[in-house]
Measured scan of single mutants.
Amino acid sequence: MGSVRTNRYSIVSSEEDGMKLATMAVANGFGNGKSKVHTRQQCRSRFVKKDGHCNVQFINVGEKGQRYLADIFTTCVDIRWRWMLVIFCLAFVLSWLFFGCVFWLIALLHGDLDTDYKDDDDKSKVSKACVSEVNSFTAAFLFSIETQTTIGYGFRCVTDECPIAVFMVVFQSIVGCIIDAFIIGAVMAKMAKPKKRNETLVFSHNAVIAMRDGKLCLMWRVGNLRKSHLVEAHVRAQLLKSRITSEGEYIPLDQIDINVGFDSGIDRIFLVSPITIVHEIDEDSPLYDLSKQDIDNADFEIVVILEGMVEATAMTTQCRSSYLANEILWGHRYEPVLFEEKHYYKVDYSRFHKTYEVPNTPLCSARDLAEKKYILSNANSFCYENEVALTSKEEEEDSENGVPESTSTDSPPGIDLHNQASVPLEPRPLRRESEIGSRR
């Protein structure tokens, strides 16, 4: 089982795998120059863009038009607004034209077009017409509009002379109601789609790998820009990579689940303020055997998904993003964004995407760390350097704002901070800030 798991979770494809794949392509008759073999020097295209759209195009789909027309309502909801407006206008105009032609044909076959009612006051002739005051196609078209929109100006009306005319008036009224219901329903469904809710759900630009509770963890940050909550919010993550099976089958995008606390339930989050999602790199993680150097040379993509129900409509929305291997910062942490004021908490989104480097973060893999092949620094050293990194950030910001350097908390000259780390230190809580992250 261990060997199978290692093969499945191998992220960085070796040169031997690339040569094996190329040999397979030639042997199977696919070596026509169009096949692409992804190596370390040639990274694959992003499968999920940063804005959440999937970078996929469908080609050679059989009976595409028929399949889309069979699900016309979903098609109308998914198309762009400009095409929705075109369909909206065409549906009414074509129905008016169709029934206008029908009423014109009825008048033509009944002989109503030969009668001039402007110079004739004989009401008996008017009563013999199928539709009064309809003696041309324009008049028939206007009567069709008046019937379907129930305008009723009063000059044109159907008589009991022709039952077919009466039937067409009733039929057009029913068709008009159906068109109204369909168009209004599609427009309302399109307006109520929770897709735009994703514009106020954000992911951090970069993911980070750092120590948390004595273990290497992959972390990324999510935030909600609205005050309205995302009900039943939960997160998922998958690692996408290519691999070759033991039988020699090439899988271009193998999807591997990344555990973010599904078993323990901590994948469900209360997204009021930005939260750091934590994936513990343990023996079940696809990143277990990867060191910093392996991450730098790897070719994979981590897709992160945030799902929840919109509070206003109770409709489920899904926000997506992805991180390539070069977008994962090893040995970094996110800057705090949640600050405790006197009577409330304040979230500073200008710090949302910012990170700071944490010294002495192990550069080895989580496996080597678990097997004690890498000796961690003293816990006080880690905490102290973590505090120094934050303090230096604040000093830089104070210097930019014009604060005198004498007010900063610099260490005395001639003292090495790293050498001082081995000395037991008193706890130094942050002056006014605390970061709330997901705790395992």
Rank of each mutant, 00 (worst) to 15 (best):
Leu324Met: 07
Gly331Trp: 01
Asn224Glu: 10
Met315Asp: 11
Lys346Arg: 08
Arg40Phe: 06
Arg40His: 13
Gln420Phe: 06
Asn7Thr: 14
Asn259Val: 08
Phe30Ser: 08
Asp116Cys: 12
Asp180Gly: 14
Ile184Asn: 04
Phe203Trp: 08
Thr39Leu: 07
Thr74Lys: 07
Val169Ile: 08
Lys241Met: 04
Ser204Asn: 02
Ile174Ser: 02
Gln172Ile: 02
Ile59Ala: 15
Asp160Met: 03
Ile244Val: 12
His279Asp: 00
Pro274Glu: 09
Glu311His: 11
Arg197Ala: 12
Val61Gln: 14
Gln318Tyr: 09
His229Tyr: 03
Val304Gly: 02
Val337Trp: 02
Asp348Cys: 02
Val403Pro: 10
Tyr68Ile: 14
Lys64Leu: 13
Asp410Glu: 05
Asn259Cys: 09
Thr39Val: 08
Lys193Gly: 05
Cys76Arg: 12
Asp299His: 08
Asp78Asn: 08
Met84His: 11
Tyr153Phe: 04
Val222Pro: 00
Tyr349Asp: 10
Gly308Ala: 10
Phe98Leu: 13
Glu340Tyr: 04
Gly31Ser: 08
Ser144Arg: 00
Glu335Phe: 04
Asn224Arg: 12
Phe300His: 01
Lys125Pro: 11
Gly100Asn: 00
Glu63Asn: 15
Ala22Cys: 04
Ser144Trp: 00
Arg243Cys: 05
Asp180Val: 10
Ile72Ala: 12
Arg333His: 07
Asn28Ala: 11
Glu426Asn: 09
Ile184Cys: 07
Phe99Ala: 01
Thr245Arg: 13
Gly52Met: 02
Phe339Trp: 11
Asp263Cys: 10
Ala107Asp: 01
Gly65Asn: 08
Ile275Tyr: 13
Ser291Leu: 01
Ala25Ser: 15
Val166Phe: 02
Val222Met: 06
His110Cys: 00
Leu142Trp: 02
Val48Asn: 02
Ala107Thr: 08
Val48Ala: 08
Asn7Val: 05
Val61Pro: 14
Ser291Lys: 09
Cys76Phe: 14
Arg243Ile: 06
Ala165Asp: 02
Lys196Leu: 11
Glu199Leu: 09
Asn419Ile: 10
Gln238Pro: 00
Lys34Cys: 10
Asp122Thr: 01
Ala91Ile: 09
Thr317Ser: 09
Ala379Gln: 13
Val272Gly: 10
Gly100Phe: 00
Asp78Cys: 11
Gly223Asp: 11
Cys162Trp: 00
Asp289Gly: 04
Phe137Val: 05
Thr391Asp: 15
Leu85Lys: 02
Ile266Asn: 10
Glu397Ile: 09
Arg197Val: 10
Phe99Cys: 00
Leu218Glu: 01
Leu430Glu: 14
Cys76Gln: 08
Arg44Ile: 10
Asn360Arg: 07
Ala366Pro: 03
Leu113Ser: 09
Asn135Ser: 14
Ala366Ser: 09
Asn378Gln: 09
Glu371Arg: 06
Ser13Ala: 12
Met191Arg: 10
Lys342Val: 07
Tyr349Phe: 09
Thr138Trp: 09
Pro286Trp: 02
Asp213Gln: 15
Glu426Phe: 04
Thr147Ile: 06
Leu105Ala: 07
Glu397His: 10
Cys54Ile: 07
Ile106Ala: 02
Lys373Cys: 13
Ile277Ala: 06
Glu405Ser: 13
Ala233Lys: 07
Tyr250Pro: 15
Ile275Ser: 10
Tyr153Gly: 15
Glu397Phe: 07
Thr391Val: 10
Gly185Asn: 06
Ile11Val: 14
Leu109His: 15
Arg156Asp: 02
Tyr356Gly: 02
Asp294Glu: 05
Val77Thr: 10
Arg367Leu: 02
Asp267Glu: 04
Phe73Leu: 06
Asp120Lys: 00
Glu387Arg: 03
Ser365Asp: 00
Ser434Glu: 15
Leu425Met: 07
Arg221Glu: 00
Asn378Trp: 03
Met315Thr: 11
Met19Cys: 10
Phe143Lys: 01
Lys227Asn: 04
Tyr374Ile: 10
Phe300Met: 06
Ile209Trp: 00
Lys373Trp: 03
Gln57Asp: 15
Asn60Cys: 05
Trp83Val: 03
Leu290Trp: 09
Arg82Cys: 04
Asn360His: 14
Cys89Trp: 05
Arg367Glu: 01
Tyr344Phe: 09
Phe141Ile: 04
Glu426Pro: 07
Gly331Met: 02
Arg351Ile: 15
Glu371Thr: 07
Leu105Met: 09
Glu199Val: 06
Ser242Cys: 11
Pro362Glu: 01
Lys346His: 12
Ala314Met: 15
Ser434Ile: 08
Phe103Thr: 05
Ala421Thr: 08
Met19Ser: 09
Asn386Glu: 15
Gln420Lys: 05
Thr150Tyr: 01
Ala207Pro: 11
Asp294Gln: 10
Val86Pro: 06
Pro412Leu: 09
Ile145Phe: 04
His343Tyr: 07
Leu113Ile: 09
Gly52Thr: 03
Ile164Asp: 07
His343Thr: 11
His332Lys: 04
Ser127Pro: 07
Val231Lys: 10
Asp416Ser: 10
Ser124Asp: 12
Lys373Asp: 15
Leu201Ala: 12
Ile275Gln: 09
Val134Lys: 00
Met219Gln: 12
Ala91Asp: 03
Phe47Ser: 04
Val403Phe: 06
Phe171Ser: 03
Pro163Lys: 06
Gln255Asp: 03
Thr313His: 09
Thr138Gly: 15
Tyr345Thr: 08
Lys128Trp: 03
Gly265Gln: 11
Gly214Ser: 12
Leu113Asp: 00
Pro163Val: 06
Leu113Gly: 02
Ala312Ile: 09
Ser173Phe: 12
Ile106Gly: 01
Asp267Cys: 05
Ile209Phe: 00
Asp112Val: 00
Phe73Val: 14
Arg82Lys: 04
Ser3Ile: 02
Ser35His: 09
Pro359Cys: 08
Ile269Cys: 07
Gly18Asp: 07
Arg212Met: 04
Val56Asn: 08
Pro427Cys: 10
Glu15Gly: 11
Arg8Gln: 04
Lys372Leu: 05
Arg221Lys: 01
Asn297Gln: 11
Ile106Ser: 02
Gln238Asn: 11
Ile251Val: 07
Glu311Lys: 08
Arg236Asn: 08
Arg44Lys: 09
Ser95Lys: 02
Cys162Val: 01
Arg351Gln: 15
Val166Met: 11
Val222Asn: 00
Tyr323Thr: 06
Arg156Gly: 00
Ser434Gln: 10
Leu425Asp: 15
Leu97Thr: 03
Asn380Ala: 07
Cys217Pro: 00
Ser242Gln: 13
Gly185Cys: 13
Lys373Glu: 07
Ala370Asp: 08
Leu97Glu: 02
Arg226Cys: 14
Val166Tyr: 04
Ala22His: 12
Tyr250Asn: 15
Ile11Phe: 12
Ser322Met: 00
Ile174Thr: 04
Leu21Pro: 06
Phe262Thr: 11
Pro412Gln: 10
Gly265Cys: 04
Arg428Glu: 15
Leu287Arg: 02
Ala129Asp: 04
Pro412Glu: 14
Tyr9Thr: 15
Val134Phe: 01
Thr361Ala: 11
Thr74Ser: 12
Asn55Phe: 03
Leu240Ser: 03
Arg428Ala: 15
Cys76Ser: 13
Lys241Ser: 09
Ser228Cys: 12
Phe99Pro: 00
Asp254Leu: 09
Arg431His: 14
Asp284Pro: 06
Thr200Leu: 10
Asn206Cys: 05
Arg428Ile: 04
Val4Glu: 11
Gly402Lys: 05
Leu142Cys: 06
Gly52Cys: 01
Gly331Asp: 02
Pro286Gln: 00
Thr245Gly: 15
Ala27Met: 05
Arg67Lys: 11
Glu301Tyr: 01
Ile256Cys: 10
Pro194Gln: 12
Gly18Asn: 08
Lys372Asn: 13
Arg8Gly: 06
Ala129Ile: 04
Arg243Lys: 12
Ser285Ile: 00
Ser144Ile: 02
Val175Glu: 03
Trp330Phe: 01
Gly154Lys: 01
Phe141Arg: 01
Trp83Asp: 03
Trp81Pro: 02
Glu232Ser: 14
Phe171Val: 09
Val187Ser: 06
Lys373Phe: 05
Met309Glu: 13
Phe339Ser: 08
Gly223Gln: 09
Leu105Pro: 00
Ala181Ser: 14
Ile145Cys: 08
Ser127Gly: 04
Asn419Asp: 13
Leu21His: 12
Cys162Ile: 01
Asp257Leu: 04
Asn7Ala: 09
Lys20His: 12
Lys64Ala: 13
Val126Gln: 07
Met84Thr: 04
Phe339Ala: 14
Asp267Tyr: 03
Met19Lys: 07
Val208Lys: 00
Leu363Met: 12
Phe182Asp: 02
Ser264Thr: 13
Gly33Val: 09
Phe155Tyr: 05
Lys195Ile: 11
Met315His: 05
Val347Gly: 03
Val272Ile: 13
Pro413Asn: 11
Ser246Asp: 13
Ser392Asp: 13
Val423Pro: 15
Val304Lys: 00
Trp220Leu: 04
Leu216Arg: 00
Gln293Cys: 07
Arg428Met: 14
Thr276Phe: 06
Asp180His: 14
Gln238Asp: 02
His205Val: 07
Gly111Ala: 03
Ala325Gly: 11
Ser434Trp: 09
Leu69Thr: 10
Ile266Arg: 13
Gln41Glu: 13
Ala325Leu: 00
Cys89Pro: 11
His229Asp: 13
Glu335Met: 05
